[in-house]
Amino acid sequence: MAEALLTLEGVHTHIGEYHILQGVDLVVPRGGITVLLGRNGAGKTTTLRTIMGLWKPSRGTVTFDGRAIGGTDTPTIAQGGIAYVPETMAVFADLTVEENMILAARQGPPDPARLDWIFGFFPAMKKFWQYPAGVLSGGQKQMLAISRAIIEKRTLILIDEPTKGLAPAIIESMIGAFAELKRDTTILLVEQNFRFAASLGDQVAVMDDGRVVHRGTMAGLSGDETLQTRLLGLSLDAHQ
């Protein structure tokens, strides 16, 4: 396995009185896509939000690129090279697609070649460049949120259920985009769509009740129906 880019050790996170993460141990190796699976309420989104500093871990360590980021504030974490795509189609609806993209380009105006590369995945972004993001469809908003995360080269991208509620055709184009993206960026992907996850993932971690209960390769999990049934309650076939 490649060296670890992100490591969570015994991370506990409380949201108010609720004890959501109960000792998460997770290793995201540099390069490729690590998929975080698990049923609803297992703590996947909380894990991403804890990495991003949006929730502070009450115990445990988060190490990113050799630095402890457990107690760091969100802007510093973002500036350190982590981008976050939340599951709620998190675009700024009143701003245009262009303004949304420029906001995310922290190192000056966006590089035209990089933009063309993004337009190659998501042609709709070019088409609606001057439109307020609020008028985009759900799928287009999701594409914008992802485009925004990759407008500059990031070390790590956290993506929360990008396929949620999207049409199959859009999911197909997203698979193509992620397959290319993972060549030079590490991605931690939370996903419920097992087929999508299986076609892209290199590593996999399965969460349940605020803990990581299984870690291994994606190939290992998708080839082992008994393991799937035990961990996810359903086999790959049932998901299709």
Partner: peptide
């Protein structure tokens, strides 16, 4: 200006602006 754009982003969703690296 770019500054004004950040203000509008904050108005809409401070958390998202923070996640993009802006100190709200």
């Amino acid at each position: 200006s770019p500054f004004g754009r950040v203000l509008q982003a904050i108005r809409e969703n401070p958390m998202r602006a923070e996640a993009l690296g802006y100190r709200v």
